[in-house]
Design a protein around this nucleic acid. Structure first.
Lengths: 233, 233
DNA sequence: CAGTGGTCTAGACCACGGT
DNA sequence: CCGTGGTCTAGACCACTGG
């Protein structure tokens, strides 16, 4: 059964991709207009538009009114990482997850934290340090500050059972965030909790989060030695 | 002048975001159908559809036929990193870029590389090692393998002027890739080229690239000490 | 089976930005 | 000015999937 289905936006998108790969439309060259493509593919202009819009979002083509659509010369690769709560990251590897609170203190936000959040003045904050284990092996050390002016409920939560990350996502629907990936050396504390010698190179993620313009939390997640994050695109 | 413009998909999108943030539609709850929202906002269903589709792509809502649209319970954050060629990364910081080839050898692809690329048998490859400098300070050490069966032109290119990354993006329109972020310790070679003691923790990116199913290149980019990658979402 | 999202259409008007 | 993409509409049919 060779079905003669209606041309979908995916057909158009894939055909365009193929032509770019085959250098039929080389880098920097101008594509036909939406109307011309719609005629060629026998579909509505809206269908072509959706296909091309998707490719533009992926950084493959560049669209401008009046000038038209061009193939990007130096396509900027976009790598998308999915950041889940630590429990899910661990359980996805079929390992048993365990969480343990190390320390909980209510303090004033230190100078460096206020600077990072763009705040002046005195700010009450909760400082939490905790460990995440996979199959009882150290997986991740978490050092977190929660801003109590933004999330006052945190003051009465002891965080002995539920990890602060999970507690927060259940309270704060979603938020703006800045995320930083880097390498650091294990200091004495990290070495002790992650079971590795001082000086071991470790992968770390820092995340700063705002909700409706208010600072929610800053967290530094340091992973077990050898950990890596990967993705495809 | 309070313009009474037509409701756009962005208006709908932002209104939905606001209602989720305000917990008017709590996590896990069911949203009205597209038709109901279209009536409420006084627009076409297609407009609502586009707004909600965008939120679904961002992982904020979950859509299923027949069951409807729900607010995600544990929104998986998506961090999108833009990966450009090293020259652009350097020049964006207003630093002067310099590239220098360290070593170029034509070899058979070693066992570990063939395994990573999912290849058996003998495969000719080009092994390139090079340095990228920002304002004459070591910025990044690059260790790259190019598969000559896929990119035969590389055999006659000496790579003394143009960096292999830039040369490749001008040849291979775009491609599938796997990218891995991790931390490593400077070995003797890295320490020498990056001007840092052996053992220094370094941030590194590995990327493996295919074009139309054929392996193009594997590269390991190791950054100067203290380097980090960041993004917002 | 029937409700809900997924998509396509044909047409219209708008908005940006070269010429 | 006017060509090109950007978006909206009203309607239609399709496809998945829960009941």
């Amino acid at each position: 059964m060779t079905q003669t289905r209606k041309t979908s936006f995916q057909d158009v998108r894939d055909a365009v991709i193929r032509r770019i790969q085959d250098q039929e439309w080389p880098q920097g060259s101008l594509l036909p207009t939406e109307l011309e493509l719609a005629e060629e593919f026998g579909c509505a202009r809206a269908t072509v538009n959706r296909a091309l819009r998707e490719l533009a979002e992926r950084g493959i083509i560049d669209r401008k009114r009046k000038s038209g659509t061009r193939v990007c010369v130096a396509p900027v690769k976009q790598a998308k990482f999915e950041i889940a709560v630590t429990r899910h990251t661990v359980e996805e590897t079929n390992a048993q997850y365990r969480y343990s609170l190390v320390d909980r203190k209510q303090l004033e936000a230190p100078e460096w934290l206020r600077a990072r959040l763009g705040l002046g003045g005195v700010q009450p904050a909760l400082h939490l340090r905790s460990m995440h284990y996979a199959d009882n092996q150290p997986f991740q050390y978490e050092d977190r500050w929660i801003m109590l002016d933004t999330v006052p409920d945190a003051e009465t939560e002891n965080f002995e059972i539920i990890a602060p990350g999970e507690w927060l996502v259940s309270r704060v629907p979603f938020s703006d965030a800045e995320i930083v990936f880097s390498a650091c050396a294990a200091d004495e504390t990290l070495g002790r909790f992650l079971g590795t010698p001082t000086g071991t190179p470790l992968f770390q993620v820092e995340r700063t989060t705002w909700f409706q313009g208010q600072p929610v939390t800053y967290v530094r997640l340091t992973f077990q030695p050898g950990y890596s994050m990967s993705t495809r695109y």
